[in-house]
C-alpha cells in the first residue's frame, strides 16, 4: 500500500492509502468530534459532526467516510465548522427528551460531553417534547427512546458484530425508531442473544443495563474492540 502525505490543520501527516481522514487525524492526536462513528463498525456518515474543510472542495466533507488523498489540505476547526457542530448538537437536544440530570448516563454520555466541549450552554431551538416510550421488557437491558439520537451504532453492533440483526430502524425522518425484531418488546424478540453489544455501543443513556441509576451507566467499549480486533486478525481460527 502506498503512503499518502497530507496536512491536517497545517500539520503534515503520512498515512496508508485508503485510510479515512478521521483515522489519520486521530492517529495524529487531532480530535474530531463524532457521534455515529465507533471503531470496528462500518461508517455511515450520519451525524455530520465530523465534517471538515478540504482546500479546493467547496463542500464540507465527513471525516469518517472521506478517504485521504495525496496533498490533501484539511482543516478540522474553523468558526464555520464550530457553528455548524454546535447547531447540530442543539438540534439533537431539541429533538427528543434529553434530561441529563436524571439520566443513567449522566457524566458518561458522548452527547453531553460533546455539548460542553463545543460550548453548548443552552439550546436556541424550541424543544419538541415528543412522546417516546421506555422498553424495559428485556431481562437485562433497557431502552429509553427519549435519549436515542438515531446514530445507528446499536443496529450496526447487532448486525455487523453480533450478527443477530435483532435491531433495525423503523419508520423514517423524525419518526424513525430503533426496533427489536418486528417492533416487538425487546424481551420478546427471540433473535436477541442478550450479548449486550448494542448497550455497550450506545453513546447516550438510551441503552442501559437494568438497575443502573442516575450517572451509573458507563458504556464499556473495550469488549467490542476485543471482538472486532480478534475477528479482523483472525485470532480465533484454529489451525488444526
Amino acid at each position: 500500500m502506498a503512503a499518502k502525505t497530507l496536512t491536517i490543520n497545517g500539520q503534515q501527516v503520512t498515512a496508508e492509502e485508503g485510510a479515512t481522514v478521521l483515522q489519520v487525524a486521530r492517529d495524529a492526536k487531532i480530535n474530531i468530534p463524532t457521534l455515529c462513528h465507533l471503531d470496528g463498525m462500518k461508517d455511515v456518515g450520519a451525524c455530520r459532526l465530523c465534517i471538515v474543510e478540504v482546500v479546493g472542495t467547496p463542500k464540507l466533507l465527513p471525516a469518517c467516510t472521506t478517504v485521504i488523498a495525496e496533498g490533501m489540505e484539511i482543516k478540522t476547526e474553523s468558526d464555520r465548522l464550530r457553528k455548524y457542530r454546535k447547531m447540530t448538537l442543539e438540534l439533537l437536544f431539541a429533538e427528543r427528551n434529553h434530561v441529563c440530570a436524571v439520566c443513567v448516563a449522566n457524566g458518561h454520555c458522548e452527547l453531553q460531553t460533546l455539548a460542553y466541549e463545543q460550548g453548548v450552554d443552552h439550546v436556541r431551538y424550541d424543544y419538541l417534547f415528543p412522546k417516546w416510550g421506555v422498553d424495559t421488557t428485556h431481562e437485562r437491558f433497557g431502552m429509553d427512546h427519549n435519549r436515542c439520537i438515531l446514530c445507528s451504532r446499536c443496529v450496526r453492533a447487532c448486525v455487523e458484530i453480533e450478527g443477530a440483526a435483532t435491531k433495525s430502524i423503523a419508520g423514517r425522518g423524525a419518526k424513525s425508531k430503533i426496533i427489536s425484531d418486528l417492533n416487538e418488546p425487546w424481551g420478546e424478540a427471540d433473535s436477541c442473544t442478550s450479548c449486550g453489544k448494542c448497550v455497550q455501543s450506545c453513546p447516550t443513556g438510551a441503552l442501559f443495563n437494568k438497575g443502573s441509576t442516575v450517572a451509573e451507566m458507563e458504556h464499556d467499549r473495550s469488549h467490542l474492540d476485543y471482538v472486532v480486533t480478534a475477528r479482523e486478525k483472525k485470532l480465533w481460527v484454529t489451525h488444526a
Binding site: V99, H122, V123, F129
Partner: peptide
C-alpha cells in the same frame, strides 16, 4: 442569568410536556 438546568432547559419540570 438562567441559573441551573431547569431555567436553561426546562429539565425535570418540563417532563410533563411529553404528555402533549
Amino acid at each position: 442569568v438562567s441559573f441551573g438546568d431547569c431555567a436553561v432547559t426546562g429539565n425535570v419540570t418540563a417532563i410533563r410536556n411529553q404528555l402533549g
